[in-house]
Amino acid sequence: MIATAAPSATASAATALRAGVRVRVRVRSSDATARAVVEAKLISAGLRPAEAPDPFPQDVLVAVGDTVEAAIEAIRPGLPDGREQLLVVADVLSRHGALQALRAGARAMVLSAEATPERLAATIHSAHRGEGRLSHLALARLLDESPASAGPGRRPGTPTLTGRQLEVLRLMADGHGNEAIAATLRCSKHTVKNVIYELMGQLQVRNRAHAVAHAVRTGLI
């Protein structure tokens, strides 16, 4: 996930904690070191991992591995059966791995390098609410793009967007709604709607998902 989304992620997690929202998290991995790193980040964010082996309703199961495939393998045969939400944290995210995670019921995927305590907490709270969350880097893998294509370099003929439009696009790619985008950019929801309307016209896309996919493919984000 991208750095511009961090303030919103922090605010979201902090708001949930203040509201007394209880989220039980279980971390599983075949790599004890990788598991310990993720658990330490969760504790830092105010989420203490549970040791109980049996899932409770609305638990969030965090599968950790060097690849998505390894993370999924670490939780077999206990794949989510509707009683808990799945979050995958992996060092490497391939298209095959991302599709496997989605088939396994993953609500969200986070690259290890991007998994700050705040971002993990925000993603876990989103998963707990039944919401999906993919960074634009994860989306790039799903579209079978190379990591370089998700960088700032644009392909020839790609429309030039303003700084504000790019910020909104990146936050949209990170799964944020208009209200969260407005809070992050400190502007009104009406302004966000106008920016989205303008950039959809410039990119000639049908909806938000199409806008994000197009932006990733052309290297805008």
Rank of each mutant, 00 (worst) to 15 (best):
L199Y: 13
T33V: 11
R103N: 15
V25A: 00
E145T: 15
A121I: 10
E198D: 13
S8L: 06
P147I: 06
K41R: 15
A13G: 02
A19E: 10
E84K: 00
S29R: 08
R35P: 13
T116N: 12
K189A: 11
I181Q: 05
L185F: 06
L42Y: 13
L79R: 08
R28N: 06
V195K: 11
G65D: 03
T191W: 12
R133D: 01
K189L: 01
G219V: 02
L17C: 02
G20K: 09
R129H: 10
N207W: 11
I196W: 10
H128I: 00
V110N: 12
S146H: 11
R26A: 06
G105S: 05
R154Y: 01
A16G: 10
A108T: 14
N194M: 03
L42Q: 10
R22V: 03
T191L: 10
G177T: 03
I181Y: 06
A14Q: 14
A104K: 09
S146W: 08
S126N: 13
Q58M: 04
L87Q: 03
L87C: 06
R35K: 14
L220H: 02
T10L: 00
E69C: 04
A121V: 12
A19F: 11
V195M: 12
T123E: 05
P159S: 09
D54F: 08
H136T: 07
I124S: 10
S30R: 14
N207H: 12
V27L: 07
R217A: 07
R26Q: 14
Q100P: 03
L102D: 12
L93M: 07
G219A: 08
T15F: 04
D66N: 13
V62I: 14
S12F: 14
S29E: 14
R76T: 04
D91M: 05
S126M: 08
T160V: 09
A14V: 05
N178G: 02
G157L: 00
I124K: 15
A70K: 13
T15Y: 09
V192C: 11
S12E: 08
E69W: 05
G219L: 04
T218Q: 15
H96E: 13
R129I: 01
V23F: 05
R206V: 04
S30M: 07
A148D: 07
A98E: 06
S12V: 10
E131L: 03
N178M: 02
A150M: 02
I43Q: 09
V212A: 09
L171D: 01
E131H: 10
V64L: 03
V62G: 11
R95F: 07
Q202W: 06
L102P: 03
T4N: 15
D66G: 05
R217T: 14
A52P: 03
T184L: 08
L111C: 07
L79S: 06
R186F: 03
M1Q: 13
V92E: 15
R208G: 00
R26T: 01
A148K: 11
R95E: 13
V88R: 07
V68R: 15
H210P: 00
R208D: 03
M1T: 12
G20N: 11
L220F: 05
R217Y: 11
P57H: 02
L185G: 09
E198L: 09
R119T: 07
L199F: 14
G20V: 04
V192W: 14
R28L: 01
M172S: 03
G177C: 05
M172V: 00
L220P: 05
L134W: 00
P156G: 09
